[in-house]
Design a protein around this nucleic acid. Structure first.
Lengths: 107, 107
DNA sequence: CTGTTGCATAACTGATAGGTTAAATAACGT
DNA sequence: ACGTTATTTAACCTATCAGTTATGCAACAG
């Protein structure tokens, strides 16, 4: 359960979501990831650590470069949580929908 | 896009996820929501504000009580974002899978 | 061995998060 | 009008976060 904390917390930062979007296109080194962002290297380095700790990405070292890639398992728990609640949410939506449709008819 | 910040940030707190879980069972007043938690009323009040600001819940006042309910639209953006990336994630997973299966055969 | 490249770690700063208690507001019962 | 109940707002504290610059370290190139 506290794994979800890390996952959603990691996803709550737009820079980190952008990094994930970049990695969705294929793996990249730290430098390649950092390039489009206007922040310092260390800042990127820590964003990557957050994503790695949340198991959203994986890292392998090749020479002096670190190559990052998406870790598909990382999103599983987050997805499952949302999927689990989607039913309830849909249910609430249906109830709201029914409520809104019933109101005018009672007039 | 910055709406996602609020949504994922709201979801990153276990107390708030528990509140959502409670509300998935049906609407409740602030007091009813607060009851099982070992934290103060004001703390709950602010959690509710965060959830409301993230559009994950809705509030209606009935007398002196505030009645909270799930707002099904609130999770839409979060769901859509995950759904959008699920394809890439699955793709990455398949590539990883293929990679792991190919390795032994090359031996 | 020396310098350079790619990246991480350390130390600091300002802002935000989550908690507290105390006070304010709003509706209810008498 | 008065006290009670339900909830929010204010003021404050501490911890964590996202950023910075400066330093450290491992791998490569000469």
């Amino acid at each position: 359960m506290q794994q979800l904390d890390a996952t959603y917390s990691a996803l709550s930062d737009p820079t980190r979501r952008a990094i994930l979007a970049r990695l969705a296109l294929g793996e990249a080194t730290v430098g390649e990831i950092a390039e489009p962002f206007p922040i310092s290297g260390p800042a990127i380095s820590r964003h990557l650590k957050v994503l790695e700790d949340a198991a959203l990405i994986a890292r392998r070292k090749q020479g002096q470069s670190h190559i990052l890639s998406l870790n598909p398992q990382g999103l599983r728990s987050a997805q499952e949580w949302l999927d689990h609640y989607r039913a309830f949410w849909s249910g609430a939506f249906d109830r709201l929908d029914a409520h809104l449709k019933k109101k005018p008819e009672t007039k």
